[in-house]
């Protein structure tokens, strides 16, 4: 699978169209720039992160004119020349990260809008090569922060259900989750889905024994289609769902802690400005800025009263992760 992926990436670079397609207002091709923001595509999140990056760095730093924003497609069209001439590449999205990892340039790399698992895979493949010291701001929230949210929003609830896939990374996540939860007096009631295991039987086992369900971003478990099952099943058992994105809260989860692309772009700009001064990047880490979203209709329907989003945010900011 990894071999196929690398092959496809190489193909992508060599067969890219000659025409330069620009993301609206983002694409400024320059011959050389110390900082290049490489955007996977002109999707809303990537655009927002890149825009926030640009605005923040302009605000922070007089050398903002040295920032170039380029889409992956445009960079491929120029055979990646813009990357090779950079001192720092900020990749936005997983596709851009893959390309930035694969390029032979000597730049430092900061990957944003990327799940932790994807970044760690890329880093593992890079070995001791030029990208060995690549940094990232993950899209994921630290487990400690999610568990802090449970403590802050539902002080009486101490049994959290989790359904995960059986991959190595899912199992590792479960081990970490148990450790973090134990420190907070929270019990994790888990079910691991093997190949061919149904989601419903797993939910039926954990939900009656839990007082909330912690949704984790595991593609083998949670898809837009299965999200309906998870939200409806949990509601049937009157179990609130703690999620990891604002969209899940809109769909019916009770609460989520998440970072917006704007918040991540802002943090990346702060790191880039520090890089311009010091020439080094910190190790990969979780986002510093975050938001809390609450679905008060769902809360009311479950007979729960929750503090307002701002209060919960302040509480989380003051807790140790």
């Amino acid at each position: 699978m990894i071999a196929i992926r690398q092959c496809s990436l190489a193909c992508l670079r060599f067969t890219a169209k000659i025409s330069v397609l620009c993301a609206a207002s983002l694409c400024v091709l320059a011959s050389a720039a110390p900082i290049t923001v490489l955007v996977s595509d002109d999707g809303a999140a990537n655009t927002a992160a890149a825009r926030s990056f640009k605005e923040t760095i302009e605000h922070l730093n007089a050398r903002a004119q040295e920032v170039t924003i380029v889409t992956l497609e445009a960079a491929n069209a120029a055979n990646g020349a813009v990357l090779r001439d950079s001192t720092l590449v900020v990749s936005v999205g997983s596709a851009a990260a893959r390309a930035a990892f694969a390029n032979a340039g000597t730049y430092a790399l900061l990957s944003i809008v990327i799940p932790k698992q994807v970044f760690q895979e890329l880093q593992g493949q890079a070995g001791n090569g030029p990208r060995a010291h690549a940094s990232a701001i993950y899209l994921d929230q630290p487990l400690g922060r999610q568990l802090n949210l449970i403590q802050a929003a539902f002080p009486g609830r101490r049994r959290a259900a989790v359904v995960l896939g059986s991959s190595w990374s899912s199992r590792a996540l479960l081990t970490d989750l148990r450790g973090e939860a134990a420190q907070r007096g929270i019990t994790i009631v888990s079910q691991v889905l093997g190949d061919g295991d149904g989601l419903f039987p797993a939910l039926q086992k954990v939900l009656p024994e839990s007082d909330l369900l912690l949704a984790v971003p595991d593609r083998t478990v949670l898809t837009p289609a299965s999200a309906r099952s998870v939200l409806v099943s949990a509601y049937r058992y009157q179990v609130p769902v703690v999620a990891f994105s604002e969209n899940y809260v809109k769909a019916g989860a009770i609460i989520a802690v998440y970072s917006t692309p704007e918040q991540i772009g802002r943090q990346a700009a702060e790191m880039a400005a520090a890089f311009q001064d010091a020439g080094t990047l910190p190790t990969p880490h979780y986002p510093k800025y975050f938001s809390v979203a609450v679905n008060y209709q769902v809360a009311r329907s479950l007979g729960m009263s929750l503090a307002d989003e701002q209060t919960l945010h302040s509480q989380l900011a003051g807790m140790r992760e």
Partner: peptide
């Protein structure tokens, strides 16, 4: 592969609204 590259969509994409006003019980 396209889906792999859009792994971040797990965090970003919209999800069908399930618990609509009509499905939520008033306490």
């Amino acid at each position: 592969h396209g889906a792999e590259d859009a792994a971040e969509q797990e965090f970003l994409r919209e999800v069908p609204t399930v618990l609509t006003a009509s499905r939520l019980l008033q306490p």
